[in-house]
């Protein structure tokens, strides 16, 4: 992907040099060879560091919240999933379209630098070279849905199977089994809030979990407080999750967060759809649960 790096650099140089943008959001090489990390170039001299390789997995659209109160013009490099995040930010009025210059990359799928770091940490039994990240194997939208210029060949989604197989298995459980299942997977949560921090849909200025007056959710790492955290988080994802899979990728205790998110995606699609979040930007567009229609279904209430 050296070629892609050069193309991105070329665009960055052009945009920063001409003053068309103040910040160019891309990646730089991390400390380890199998590591790339988000990088914001602010001048032409920074462009040297920019790379685009198979480890550029991070969804940069989340970082747009940092600039929401400013006036800077921002260039952002997005893959298919990330571009849906940009739509999320636009629909949520966290960013104005005319402040963005979007470079879309038709994405062949990425490897997970975090997984690679762990693999080489010595803390795990090495199991050989890892292939594409799980989130990329489950990808439905490798090609950006919004961009000002696009790079690379149009890609076919890696995911070909039945999208909701695991969700259906979850639905097929008895309520006791399901309670047992969630108790088990959520009891390990250490409440590091990485899933929230990395999420583009989590763009509230003050998160409900940080509210002190009143404090809605206790901070104990108990099943009760952990349930409360994850249930409220899930509510807020309904119709808003753009399926970038970052939450699940960064979770240090491997909670199947995308399973929860996909259940919501399936339900929103079923009751209010057909709907997939962030697939296209229409000015004034809103996710279904941000709208009210007289014929909205309510039989599940």
């Amino acid at each position: 992907m050296k070629d892609m790096t050069d193309q991105v650099k070329e665009i960055a140089t052009k945009l920063l040099e001409s003053g068309q943008v103040d910040v160019f959001m891309a990646w730089e090489k991390g400390d380890a060879p199998h590591q790339s990390k988000p990088f914001f170039a602010r001048n032409v001299a920074d462009v040297e560091k920019i790379i685009f390789d198979e480890y550029c997995i991070h969804n940069l659209s989340t970082y747009l919240t940092r600039f929401r109160d400013g006036k800077e013009k921002i260039a952002i490099v997005v893959k298919g999933c990330d571009s849906r995040g940009v739509v999320r930010m636009l629909e949520d009025h966290q960013m104005k379209r005319d402040r963005l210059h979007i470079i879309g990359i038709n994405c062949p799928g990425m490897k997970d630098p975090l997984e690679a770091m762990k693999q080489h940490s010595g803390f795990e039994r090495e199991t050989g070279e890892k292939g594409l990240a799980i989130k990329c194997l489950q990808c439905m939208q490798p090609n950006p849905v919004i961009y000002d210029e696009s790079l690379g060949e149009i890609q076919e989604p890696h995911f070909k199977g039945e999208r909701f197989t695991e969700v259906k298995a979850l639905e097929a459980m008895s309520s006791e089994e399901r309670y047992q299942f969630f108790s088990e997977v959520l009891s390990t949560c250490i409440r590091c809030y990485a899933c929230r921090q990395v999420c583009v849909a989590c763009n509230c200025r003050t998160c409900i979990f940080d509210e002190a007056k009143p404090q809605w959710v206790g901070r104990e790492t108990s099943v009760g407080d952990n349930f409360m955290y994850h249930i409220v988080r899930a509510f807020h994802m309904a119709g808003r999750c753009i399926e970038c899979g970052e939450c699940e990728r960064v979770c240090p205790v491997n909670i199947p967060l995308m399973l929860i998110n996909r259940k919501l995606i399936k339900d929103v699609d079923h009751y209010f759809g057909p709907y997939d979040a962030g697939m296209a930007y229409v000015e004034g567009g809103k996710p279904p649960l941000s709208l009210y229609k007289i014929d909205d279904p309510d039989d599940f209430i």
Binding site: K37, P38, F39, F40, H58, T62, Y63, I190, R191, C192, Y193, A194, R196, Q197, V198, V250, P252
Partner: peptide, 16 residues
């Protein structure tokens, strides 16, 4: 500023 740019301010590092 550049050092902290990538940081998402999650608590993983502090908890591990």
């Amino acid at each position: 500023h550049p050092l902290s740019d990538p940081c998402i301010n999650c608590g993983i590092c502090t908890y591990v």
